[in-house]
């Protein structure tokens, strides 16, 4: 009898998942990275309302999954049926494309390299900036404890690392000097968490370190959630243009018949409403030039900072990944020397 109950429950569990695909009954799964939870909660509510208004009778549910960007990409490759992926960096979506789940030119299918919002890397310091940290070169001073996640596992951490590297090159340094600089920087890192959220918690909750290298949106969110009286944001003289791309997973949407709606979902991110939501969650909306109102607000909120792109300084993700973060790459060399 117990066994019978068990089987009927198992059946119920399976049907609960499979049984949602009737004619006008859609579910989308958005597999995303750590800091976008709040953004997509908002986006989903608004998009569902809009879609159901335009398509009366439709019932739309959007599911979210969040985690470290690399780990999420791995899950999609292993069979997590994501209709859309919205990850931290192009490399992770490239990895999915390589398995044939989506086309390799996904960054050409949507405006701005398929990045509806961009961000950059800034410093979060304790109130009053007691260690007087102004720019990247302050991070390698003795006695400054820097918190950043591990570039091997975290997308955000790779952006941190590359921003520091680019800072040296953009100031007339060469590769050897950049390597030395990064070496010194990581000597000042006492804790390497695996993900961006983990590092933020280490810095703000557990009180470790003098400065946190963070996504700009993550830094603003931490200040808002945990108290402007405790932290302040320092924007360095130059930083990296972080473009977290979005893509429809072709194989999944074709199988599930959700292509139209998945495409509309990603396009929604580029509408004034979508851009407004990105701004609300401290991302820099990508299409500000078309929207003077948003452009002004953008200028008033975010400190102007010289941004360089990964293609311009490093020649794209695949090169970066191999040279810096692969096994035996520059990060391994630096970290082992420590």
């Amino acid at each position: 009898m117990v066994r019978k109950l068990a089987f009927s429950l198992l059946a119920a569990g399976t049907f609960g998942i499979a049984g949602t695909a009737t004619a006008a009954d859609y579910t989308l799964l958005n597999v995303s990275y750590d800091p976008t939870r709040e953004l997509y909660q908002d986006v989903n509510t608004r998009f569902i309302k809009q879609w159901e208004a335009k398509n009366p009778g439709d019932k739309l549910t959007i599911r979210q999954s969040h985690g470290g960007s690399g780990k999420q990409a791995r899950s999609v490759i292993d069979g997590l049926e994501a209709d859309v992926v919205t990850l931290a960096l192009g490399y992770d979506i490239d990895a999915i494309a390589e398995r044939g789940l989506l086309s390799k030119d996904y960054q050409k299918k949507l405006p701005n390299n398929a990045s509806p919002y961009v961000s950059t890397i800034v410093f979060l310091v304790r109130k009053g900036n007691p260690k007087n940290i102004k720019d990247w070169n302050d991070l390698i001073k003795p006695g400054v404890a820097v918190i950043t996640p591990n570039p091997k596992t975290s997308g955000g951490a790779r952006w941190n690392y590359l921003a520091a590297w680019g800072y040296v090159l953009k100031n007339g340094g060469n590769e050897a000097q950049a390597k030395e600089f990064i070496g010194k920087l990581f000597k000042n890192v006492p804790i390497l968490d695996t993900g961006a959220r983990g590092s933020t918690t280490t810095f703000v909750e557990r009180g470790q370190g003098d400065v946190l290298l963070a996504w700009e949106n993550e830094a603003y969110l931490a200040v808002k959630e945990l108290g402007p009286e405790k932290f302040e944001i320092v924007t360095p003289s130059i930083s990296i243009l972080a473009e977290p791309p979005v893509a429809v997973v072709d194989k999944v949407v074709d199988k599930r018949g959700t292509r139209k709606i998945a495409q509309a979902y990603l396009e929604y991110l580029y509408t004034p409403e979508g851009q407004e939501l990105a701004f609300k969650h401290y991302y820099r909306p990508a299409l500000t030039e078309k929207d003077p109102f948003l452009a002004t607000r953008n200028k008033n909120t975010f400190t102007k900072v010289k941004l360089f792109s990964i293609d311009e300084v490093f020649g794209g993700w695949s090169k970066v990944q191999k040279a810096h973060f692969g096994d035996g790459g520059i990060f391994d060399q630096i970290y082992e020397k420590k």
Binding site: L10, G13, T14, G16, I17, A18, S75, D78, G79, L80, E81
Partner: peptide, 17 residues
């Protein structure tokens, strides 16, 4: 085989069980 027959094990309830 699982994908061709649209059976979900991991990333679904059966996998968790």
């Amino acid at each position: 085989y699982l994908q061709d027959n649209d059976i979900k094990i991991i990333f679904a309830v059966p996998g968790i069980v």
